[in-house]
Computed example of a mutant assay.
Amino acid sequence: MRHLRVLCAIADTGSLHKAARQLGMSQPSLTTQLRRIENALGAELFARERTGCRPTPLGRSVLSRARPLVSQMATLVTETRAAAARADGPRLRVGSTASRALPGWLRRLRHRLPGTDLALHMDVSANALLRMVAAGQLDVAFVHEVEGCPLRVPDGLVRRVLVDREPQFISMARDHPAAAEPVVDLTDLAADRWMVDPTVDGEWDGLRRVLAEAGIDPPVLHADYHTAASLIVLGEAVAPCQPTSGPREDMAIRPLRDDPLAVRLLLHARPGTPIDELYTELASAYREAALRAAAYRQWLLRNGSPLLRAA
């Protein structure tokens, strides 16, 4: 069954790198596992191309049989876990993309729902989290939707909008020339190398659109944001970041003029989940994180944000 899940993940993502991230393993390990599967079957299941992996005719045949088995096994595991949770006590399975509001949200949920077992699942892919909610593997998911790149939301989920348009700021080295200004123009960063994580749904497409509209074509490096931070502080790159990002002595975080980059913050849940209670605690946690970040707090003041009135 593990091998079948590997094949389905590669086919769904079209990339060994993305599939490895989705499965929580390294790309070399995934490549080795795929090679063993193909050696056992005596034929290639995927054609490796410059743009990714594409199933061969045999691969499509194997996938047509594998997908129902993987789906049935997922349903079996979900139903078994749900039955065990009902027997052992209340449980809330929370999914989330990265957010500075997450620790405060979990703290508030533990206080509001005493005795509830809180399970957390993190993923860079909002679409993957939404699929897990629809499949019954999660009860609720807090996700980011890049402006201009709508998420693929499965039918039947309940939704609340936390922030309709959250501006994305820019992180750069503390001694970057643009860091001397409180607000940065995109054209001031035209000569910089930009870093973006292509595994974050919509991130690369959204950035590419904004850069094109600004008439600039800077060099772009695809990497995860943990790698990006080490290069940013050295002045080797700049990168988009959440406005709630905390202060660092070796890094400057600035808003972009006219806020061309933005995301929408959404809470999705299965029907029957107490989404209004969860939303209330998430909104309080987000407000706390927003007001704690100095650059974002100033942006909220300039724009007369309702977050300040709520506070």
Rank of each mutant, 00 (worst) to 15 (best):
A47C: 01
L221H: 10
E49I: 06
S284H: 04
G136E: 02
A229R: 15
R292G: 01
R54N: 02
R110D: 05
I275A: 13
L151C: 04
E145P: 11
V220A: 12
G59K: 02
E288C: 10
S96T: 15
I275E: 15
A310T: 10
I275V: 14
G52N: 10
Y225H: 12
E288F: 13
R209H: 04
M251D: 07
D224S: 15
L113V: 00
A141E: 07
A295K: 05
R112A: 10
E181T: 10
R54W: 12
I10M: 10
A252E: 13
P90I: 03
Q72N: 01
Q72F: 02
V196T: 02
D175H: 10
R309L: 13
Q22E: 07
P218E: 05
T80N: 11
R248Y: 03
P306A: 04
L221V: 09
E145G: 07
A311H: 09
L211V: 00
P154V: 01
I275Q: 13
G89R: 00
A310V: 08
Q27C: 08
V196Q: 01
M172P: 05
P218T: 06
L23N: 04
E38N: 05
L162K: 11
E79Y: 08
L282A: 09
A311V: 09
V200P: 00
H3S: 06
S245Q: 01
A294V: 11
N39C: 09
A43T: 13
A101N: 04
R48P: 06
